[in-house]
């Protein structure tokens, strides 16, 4: 910091930006880590079945497994295109 910089407004705190970005991505990746290996294939096969009837994109089907102590919930979320006959 030179003499004149001393009076200027503070520089952006990039460490805070790094911390926030890391907290988000690490939480996301930890969630993925606990998923069983078969989920991606299950998701692909579900997409294939739904495509027989409705035209959807790959990212319109979301499969997640929530595991609690005594039961697991398989959550299937399908977003259908807006204008369907």
């Amino acid at each position: 910091m030179s003499f004149f910089d001393y009076f200027k407004s503070k520089k952006k705190n990039t460490a805070n930006v790094a911390k926030e970005r890391l907290q988000i991505i690490v939480a996301h990746e930890r969630g993925m880590r606990d998923q069983p290996d078969y989920l991606p294939q299950l998701q692909q096969e579900l997409i294939a079945v739904i495509r027989k009837y409705v035209q959807i994109d790959d990212d319109m089907v979301q499969v997640e497994l929530d595991r609690n102590d005594d039961c697991s919930v398989l959550e299937l979320n399908v977003t259908l295109p807006e204008h369907q006959q």
Binding site: K11, K12, N13, T14, A15, N16, K19, L22
Partner: peptide, 10 residues
């Protein structure tokens, strides 16, 4: 200190 690097605590 200058906010350019993650701290130990972070």
């Amino acid at each position: 200190d200058r906010g350019e690097m993650l701290s130990v605590g972070d």
